[in-house]
Simulated assay, not measured.
Amino acid sequence: MSIFPSEVINVTNLIDSTVITPSELPLVKEYAWDFENNDFLLVDGKNAIVTGKEAIKVWVWKALQTKKYRYRAYTSKYGHELDSLINQGFSTGALKAELERYLKESLLVNVYITGVKTIDITIDGSKTDVSFTVTTVYGEVSVSV
């Protein structure tokens, strides 16, 4: 298993309008992530592996921590462009709408993710908190960033 995301490799199926059923997808796997310490989760000195909803949560977190087009190790579909919203002078309503659009664009490239909903955006000065629910082929995952 590689440390690089591989779940976006089936995106061409979405472009070709091919319907993918959950039974056709391999079980998603990711290295476990310690969100509090911002590092891989180790068990007996080795990387732990998570699957299903927990793996999607790790993938979402990593995608939202990675700037799109910045690292050659990732495809051009992986990551986010949220930084482009900084200092644009948008009204609060426009900023929230753009944040929601960018968030969905960043996450819906993953074939295991079928939707993003219940997006709650709080803007306090220069700080923005976002929480949302990701609908996956395994069920729903709540995320806060």
Results as ranks from 00 to 15, higher is better:
residue 21 T to M: 11
residue 86 I to Q: 03
residue 93 G to H: 05
residue 118 T to L: 14
residue 7 E to D: 12
residue 69 Y to A: 10
residue 134 V to E: 05
residue 92 T to E: 14
residue 101 R to E: 15
residue 23 S to G: 07
residue 78 Y to H: 08
residue 12 T to R: 11
residue 89 G to D: 09
residue 125 G to S: 12
residue 65 Q to S: 09
residue 144 S to C: 10
residue 2 S to N: 15
residue 121 I to N: 05
residue 38 N to Y: 00
residue 39 D to T: 00
residue 135 T to P: 02
residue 94 A to L: 10
residue 16 D to V: 05
residue 129 D to A: 15
residue 116 V to I: 15
residue 11 V to G: 03
residue 130 V to Q: 04
residue 43 V to P: 02
residue 21 T to C: 13
residue 16 D to C: 10
residue 6 S to F: 09
residue 34 D to M: 00
residue 28 V to A: 04
residue 99 L to R: 04
residue 51 T to D: 06
residue 71 Y to H: 08
residue 62 K to Q: 12
residue 25 L to Y: 09
residue 124 D to H: 08
residue 117 K to R: 15
residue 119 I to S: 08
residue 56 I to H: 00
residue 74 Y to K: 04
residue 65 Q to G: 00
residue 41 L to K: 06
residue 90 F to Y: 15
residue 72 R to Q: 09
residue 105 E to H: 13
residue 13 N to Y: 14
residue 82 L to S: 03
residue 107 L to A: 04
residue 143 V to W: 06
residue 17 S to G: 11
residue 11 V to Q: 11
residue 80 H to A: 03
residue 118 T to P: 00
residue 92 T to L: 11
residue 79 G to Q: 03
residue 48 A to L: 06
residue 115 G to L: 10
residue 91 S to E: 08
residue 14 L to Q: 14
residue 74 Y to H: 10
residue 66 T to L: 05
residue 73 A to K: 01
residue 7 E to A: 04
residue 21 T to D: 11
residue 114 T to P: 03
residue 99 L to Q: 02
residue 69 Y to K: 09
residue 3 I to W: 03
residue 59 W to F: 10
